[in-house]
Design a protein around this nucleic acid. Structure first.
Lengths: 153, 153
DNA sequence: AAATACCTTACTAATTTTGTCAAGTATTTT
DNA sequence: AAAATACTTGACAAAATTAGTAAGGTATTT
């Protein structure tokens, strides 16, 4: 349950490759394709969205490729996934573009909203830099929990 | 992104109705259908799974219906969703039934695993009793954060 | 025996996902 | 100027999943 589509997954992996070239080495689509085992046409579709969102820009011609528009520590996983898959919406009625017609009597509305918030907090906290620095499983949990403690939750 | 299927959503809402009758009032499928706006055949499919999982049992004949097998505080949202939608698996390679062929070189593996763990912790913490007692949005967040603090995370 | 209520399997329409394909446009190097 | 490299766009379609419906049972109580 709660699976992420391949677009989101590949998008994050593509951004990881582009981040590795930051700040001065443009990364070609071919090189991303080879390193991450994703077809070039599919990557084009994905990178196109990320470019329109202002997360990356492209440099044409020989020697060109993609580069980050912001530093790796300034780009979160949420930034990437949001562009490729839209907002976290555990249920359709929690999608801002749809809306709920039975909020009042829906006993689970707040439950899903709260779960969505937990997920968003996590995704907003982890950045490309965390990915680059090879964080461990425990590290990721600590990053988010530490942040919450500091926020006084 | 990360949407729950209707089976999972309806399943939780159905369990909520059955929990309202706990411990001595069997809840008919018809009554669940009317209160939660879900068709009877679809509910049968859902309740069948929950029954096989031992979360509920059915009483046949007039005056019959469904009743919880355990107290509301002993049944978590994770118990319900796991039966209806399988384990939390952000990516297919994190699904226990599939497995990952590139764990070593996958830079996002631990990220998704960690996110999955956050979600599971949340779902394992909230029970039917929390739903019955009409918890607020903030309440849900507090339940899980308090638990984590106590665990010394 | 009649009414109530659950039980099971099969099927299918709709939607979403996961890509491919074809035909471009833009830039740099030689 | 030409060639090579690289990105850009929109349309299309197979495959998988979701979200149910339909039909024909079986079991229990009154």
């Amino acid at each position: 349950m709660l699976r992420l589509s391949t677009k989101g997954q590949y998008g994050v992996r593509a951004m990881y490759e582009i981040a590795r070239g930051y700040p001065d080495e443009p990364v070609t689509i071919r090189s991303i394709s080879e390193k991450q085992d994703v077809s070039i046409p599919y990557l084009e579709q994905i990178l196109n969205k990320l470019r329109h969102a202002g997360l990356i820009r492209s440099i044409k011609g020989p020697g060109g490729g993609y580069v980050l528009q912001r530093a790796p520590e300034e780009i979160t996983i949420a930034d990437i996934l949001f562009e490729l898959e839209g907002p976290v919406a555990i249920t359709s009625c929690l999608d801002p573009s749809e809306g709920c017609i039975r909020v009042e009597r829906c006993v689970t509305h707040l439950l899903w909203k709260s779960l969505g918030k937990q997920i968003e907090d996590f995704l907003n906290t982890i950045t490309l830099k965390d990915l680059l620095s090879g964080k461990s499983y425990k590290d990721f949990a600590n990053i988010i929990n530490k942040k919450k403690r500091m926020a006084g939750v």
